[in-house]
Design a protein around this nucleic acid. Sequence first.
DNA 1: TGAAATGTTGGGGCG
DNA 2: ACGCCCCAACATTTC
Length: 481
Amino acid sequence: MPRPIIVWFRSDLRLRDNRALLRAVATGAPIIPVYVLDDEQSDHWRTGSASRWWLHHSLAALAGDLQKLGSRLILRRGNALTVLAKLAIDCKATAVHASRAYQPWAGQLETGLKQRLEADGVDFRRFSGSLLFEPEAVRTKDGRPFKVYSPFWRAAMEPGDPPRPEPAPRALAAPARWPASDDLNAWRLCPEKPDWAAGWPQHWLPGEAHAQERLKEFLRSSLTVYATDRDRPDRLATSRLSPRLAFGELSPATIWHEAHAASRSKPELAAGLSKFCKEIGWREFSYHLLWHFPSLPDAPFRPEFEKFPWRKAPVALRAWQRGQTGYPIVDAGMRELWQTGYMHNRVRMIAASFLIKDLMLPWQQGEAWFWDTLVDADLASNAASWQWVAGCGADAAPYFRVFNPTLQGEKFDPNGVYVRRWVPELARLPDAFIHRPATAPSQVLAEAGVELDHTYPRPIVDHAEAREHALLAFKGLKAVV
DNA sequence: TGAAATGTTGGGGCG
DNA sequence: ACGCCCCAACATTTC
């Protein structure tokens, strides 16, 4: 009986464009697909609550897709190195295939696993698949990693298009004997009491098949208006592909090539395509930074920010988390996040700016909250983006760029459609006051059924004052350096 | 992938 | 008719 190959699924929960899988299938060997839930690989970046919900459903979908090809998904829990090394011996595997990962702990894990497996006579082969370009492959002229986005992306794209995606295997040979598998439900990845995700299937259907549909739908209906409408939370013009990328239900190469193909058949999509690819580029840049600067999720990229006089304000943090800041666009975003595991990108920037510059709370607290509540939580993108807003990151927003939450609301949600959806207690306010309820005449408030301090809070900080305060603090930091 | 403060311009009201 | 002032509207600078 031929010996099997273990395909270790990680953040690549798909069958299409999965080289680790495809190269294993190509050998003709029996395939043992495995997923290992390893909550100890990082002490404080354990998969967050919202992501665990997604993970559960995406694993269920992958298991179903594998079953259709005559295979299974073996589930194991524990230290990935130990689990895989033992499984490889028990199954008499000749090799373990996996897609590369880029978290701070991933390199060491992969090196350790390779040594351990090879000592046992088992090959360990890594494949790319989660990024368009490997972090080491993009270098400045003097061989260093990039710290600025534009030249990074130019250099990354310079050698030519990323590799074309490969098809899914048509069938997987089963091993003579299947190893035991955990029961997915027993992992308890989904919330129970309370089941705050009960309504989430209305918003999200995890799994590769739905990811493919979402991609096609986005390219068909939104790419044409993407360049302008992507900033409008009241319109559904963003791709919402982020959780698909985070779990690898789609490869970035698939997205990249399908978007280009769509644009070739319709030249009017060119503007949207170029904006959209730039966003994919930011994801690549984030991974580039995380790989070369593994402290990115925890420490400011610009070390002078270690001295920044952040406030300690648990009550304000709580108000921000629960969408009770008194700034409708911020509250709408935070409630969208809490209720659906997602927030529109423009609103993420506004909400993040508010936490950092208006409340002067450390960016790490916002990062941690997003990590736990986002279904698309991604260590690289989350860390890089928070540092970008805080001004302490690579190629970051300048310190004096402070978002005015009222003006941002009026500019990007001009008719208050987004606010009304997520902050229903303000729904009956006229447009003129939907982003500034505390300035509405009392009669207007009464007619809209709004009682300040009771049905909706007054602003927990005065933005104009907070802005002055923040500018002073950031300027002081600059003076020290 | 800002916003506020400050500067400049030009049309229109008015003596 | 003319100059003066006011002040939107727009442009530039500064944080």
